[in-house]
Amino acid sequence: MPLAADTNIYLIGPRASGKTTLGRKLAESLGRSFVDLDARFVEARGETIAELVAREGWDAFRRAEADILAETAAQKGLVAATGGGVVLLPENRALLAKGLVLYLQAHPDRLAERLMADLNPDQRPNLTQLGLKEEIVATLAEREPLYFSLAHACLPERPIDELLEYTLRALKMF
């Protein structure tokens, strides 16, 4: 039985793992709408994540992110790229579990390379006071068990075209 057309597909994983890039290509291949939750936050709030975090802290962002995920989950048949920390709140995990969840894996060295190549502190503010590589390792240690617990499939790091083909093959299992 093929994946139901009204099932949302959620891409989870650390920042810079390729969720937005894959999400756009996957949505196009499947003829579905694409949503980037971080971009939706900026559109809805009229401010960057960094601005909210600087003013009110990460907890305020997580609450806003949960609202945006709930609004997105009420729609059907989307491909959605989530923020890396969306898995931290239990209510978010419950919403994600109602769709098909794909975990984009990436090595910490590769994540650091991508983040250094595309510095965007407004969209990707530091999560800790650690250096970039140390922050990535610490964040993965905290979040990876949550990513694994939600994932219907884990997508290995690959060049984007190979990753898209791998993902489309994986979706045939559902």
Rank of each mutant, 00 (worst) to 15 (best):
M1R: 11
P2V: 12
L3K: 05
L3A: 13
A5K: 14
N8R: 11
G13A: 10
P14G: 10
R15Q: 08
G18T: 03
K19E: 00
T21H: 10
T21K: 01
L22I: 09
L22M: 07
G23H: 00
G23I: 02
R24P: 03
K25T: 03
A27M: 00
A27F: 07
S29W: 05
L30A: 06
L30S: 08
F34Y: 15
V35Y: 12
D36K: 04
F41Y: 15
R45Q: 12
T48M: 09
I49L: 13
A50H: 00
L52S: 02
L52C: 02
L52E: 02
R55F: 08
E56T: 08
W58V: 07
W58N: 04
W58E: 14
D59W: 03
A60S: 14
A60E: 06
F61Y: 15
R62A: 06
R63G: 00
A64D: 03
A64Q: 06
A66K: 02
D67S: 11
L69G: 00
A70H: 09
A70K: 10
T72D: 09
T72N: 08
T72R: 11
Q75G: 04
V79F: 15
G83K: 04
V86Q: 03
V87P: 03
L88T: 01
L88S: 07
P90Q: 09
K98C: 05
G99I: 05
G99H: 09
V101S: 14
L102P: 05
Y103I: 00
L104N: 07
A106H: 05
H107A: 15
P108I: 08
P108L: 09
D109Q: 13
R110V: 13
R110M: 10
R110Y: 04
E113L: 05
R114Q: 09
L115K: 03
D118Y: 03
D118H: 14
L119E: 15
L119G: 05
N120G: 00
N120E: 09
N120I: 04
R124C: 07
R124L: 11
P125Y: 12
P125W: 12
L127E: 00
T128R: 11
Q129F: 07
Q129I: 02
G131H: 08
L132Y: 03
L132C: 01
K133A: 13
E134G: 06
E135T: 00
I136K: 07
A138E: 12
L140Y: 04
L140M: 14
E142V: 06
E142G: 02
R143S: 06
E144G: 03
E144F: 06
E144A: 12
P145L: 13
P145I: 06
P145F: 12
P145R: 10
Y147A: 11
F148N: 13
A151C: 12
A151N: 10
H152P: 03
P156H: 08
E157F: 00
E157R: 07
R158K: 15
R158S: 13
P159L: 12
I160Q: 10
D161R: 01
L163A: 15
L163D: 02
L164W: 09
E165F: 10
E165T: 14
T167H: 09
R169H: 14
R169M: 11
R169N: 15
A170G: 11
L171H: 13
L171T: 09
L171E: 12
M173K: 14
M173F: 10
